[in-house]
Design a protein around this nucleic acid. Sequence first.
DNA 1: AATGAATGAGGATTCATTCAT
DNA 2: TATGAATGAATCCTCATTCAT
Lengths: 216, 216, 216, 216
Amino acid sequence: MNREYLPKEKAIYQAVLALFEEGADINSLTVAEITGRAGIGKGTAYEYFSGKEEMIAKAFFYNGEMFCGQLYEGICKKSTLYDKIYCVLLEMERQIPSMDCVFRLLHMLSENSSVSRWIRKLLREREMTEEAPAAGMIRRVLLDELDGREMPSEEMMTYLVFSIYSRIFCYGMMLKDEKYQNAEQRESIRSLVCQGVCREVEDALTDPKLGQNLTG
Amino acid sequence: MNREYLPKEKAIYQAVLALFEEGADINSLTVAEITGRAGIGKGTAYEYFSGKEEMIAKAFFYNGEMFCGQLYEGICKKSTLYDKIYCVLLEMERQIPSMDCVFRLLHMLSENSSVSRWIRKLLREREMTEEAPAAGMIRRVLLDELDGREMPSEEMMTYLVFSIYSRIFCYGMMLKDEKYQNAEQRESIRSLVCQGVCREVEDALTDPKLGQNLTG
Amino acid sequence: MNREYLPKEKAIYQAVLALFEEGADINSLTVAEITGRAGIGKGTAYEYFSGKEEMIAKAFFYNGEMFCGQLYEGICKKSTLYDKIYCVLLEMERQIPSMDCVFRLLHMLSENSSVSRWIRKLLREREMTEEAPAAGMIRRVLLDELDGREMPSEEMMTYLVFSIYSRIFCYGMMLKDEKYQNAEQRESIRSLVCQGVCREVEDALTDPKLGQNLTG
Amino acid sequence: MNREYLPKEKAIYQAVLALFEEGADINSLTVAEITGRAGIGKGTAYEYFSGKEEMIAKAFFYNGEMFCGQLYEGICKKSTLYDKIYCVLLEMERQIPSMDCVFRLLHMLSENSSVSRWIRKLLREREMTEEAPAAGMIRRVLLDELDGREMPSEEMMTYLVFSIYSRIFCYGMMLKDEKYQNAEQRESIRSLVCQGVCREVEDALTDPKLGQNLTG
DNA sequence: AATGAATGAGGATTCATTCAT
DNA sequence: TATGAATGAATCCTCATTCAT
């Protein structure tokens, strides 16, 4: 599934990601820094990429694909919704450096820089025009949960995806907060997140009328 | 409460925000563009700011303060948790341009650019070192809900704040998604979000033991 | 003899000289620094001077006039050539900060900056188009020494002025050298300079043929 | 002995010196002018120098080294003190454009600009912390003259070096004066300078007690 | 294919000078 | 007369990109 990457191409990706993880500001990254770190000549990079933006955009995209791939593998091994979500949160915790890159990728999606435009172009090319990157994965997990029950309304599905997505997203943000570096605290919150997701999904799938006439 | 802003200072803020709302990339904004839009001389800007970074950082901070101030006013007028959350979501929808700026401000908090460093400095100066900007507001709303009931555990409080924060945050993200531009769909999801928040909070406050021994 | 200076004009001169004595680089002096130090408004300076260059040029010129005036007063009180030269060297030592300004003034004469052009203009205006500033003073001292004896050739006079000038000049340079801060050493060299000047002058005035046919 | 210079490095030096000799003010030289004259791109200069100051400082230093090298070669070929000094003065006259640069270099030593700081740094790096640049050369010439005679006191040596230095220096200043452009006049003064130096040195070396008890 | 020296467009910043008060 | 806020021309320097080797 993962295409093969040319060695120099991969070296560029890893250089960009390494520099980012070391605290470099993406917008101040220079081609000289990137190629220097990658151990290749400046001119060489232009044999593989059209410009700096493409290097950076593809590097973050590369990381996103790797990360999602690993998440997906983990999810497939679990059977319950609780375990699947738990597995995702745990994987996020195990790969905090990659997570930073993933978050940056998500930020870039809503930016207006030339790197961002490249990111969006890459998404379009690979027909990943989902509501949000990786949201498709959540939708698929939800569909697995139906298990013969009645399909909820489209609004409800959208809401559920958003709800789960947002909880996972914010758990990731929390991982970066220095106030929540305590392992037990994380464990506790991780459980609460999984439990919250399960209850909400279960309620929604059990009673499909839920959410209607709410504002009436 | 809001301090007074010098006219030229304010002109710079509004110019930065206007350019951003028109789709400019923050990292490629030039001082010439900003001052040109603000209708003042390039040199004049340097009488009020130490450099481009300060201009941009303070502009977004200014917008954040304005936006939060309006949200807070709205919240204070409502009595139920549902209405408070609903009010926040509605206000977000009414001020989509401002929302974009607020999101950008949040993104910048986790960046490593010189603008970001300015933002963090401003936060520190005003002692806003909460878990996340505006998260303090959510915590206060939650405390109002206690209404004599037993205070839940600190983990639970943290989780609830995160849970609410993440839903609001993702509702904002959804507002930007072209697939959810339909007013009715938004109305429906807005209700689901409020309902989801209320149920979760009510459960947690009613049964303080919830969330304990979850992993056991 | 010394014309009166307007208070603000003098304040500018003293500010420039003070800044210079504190180590400021003349070419990087700003009008803001000068007027700030002088305690007057930036615009006010332009009521008295046509621009920054004039301020600086006139300030150094002012210092030069003051310094030469004091030297001249001292010389007039002495009767022998030895004492006159000794008096000059001693005065130089007593006014080292002023000396720095005098040297800078001399440097500027051979520069090509706009300040220098102002200095030269001032010299021309006051008809001080001598071989070198203050060289006229030396020539007059020499003429005093003739005392009835035969006037030497013009070449010899020129040479003598230069010879004395150069010794005084270099004594001043030596004063700035950290290796010659020892008072006794200075005393000793001061005497050697005076003695050297006297012997040379005496030889030249006693035997007017000296210096002729030298290269033959 | 002279290290090799990279072609572009040398082009910058020559451009700076040429511009200076054409009357440009050092402090208003722009990088664009320098590189334009050197026939290289603006950015290229920054591959060889850290900034404008380094370019200018090294250019003048380069000229100083070249000039002193030539002087030294000339001196070595002469045997008498008279001829050595005469050779120096003649060389100065033959290379008036270079002389201007040398004088500017000397001026810069007592300035406080960033170019000056570079010059002093270069001197320190090459351990040329003599009393004044090239003064070491004079001291060596003097030692050659001892020729078995008793070494004079340190004060006397210092005085002699200064005395010779100052005469040479002022001869150089005279070369620039429009009043002394007449070849015969110069010839005459040149002889007087050499003769003056020889008599003073001879007196001092012959009678080592000279200069003592002078002020008593 | 790989390189890195050379380039110059572009942008932040400074500061002399003006002028309305 | 005195001021200092406002200005924008001028300049240093960076860095993405090219291209001869």
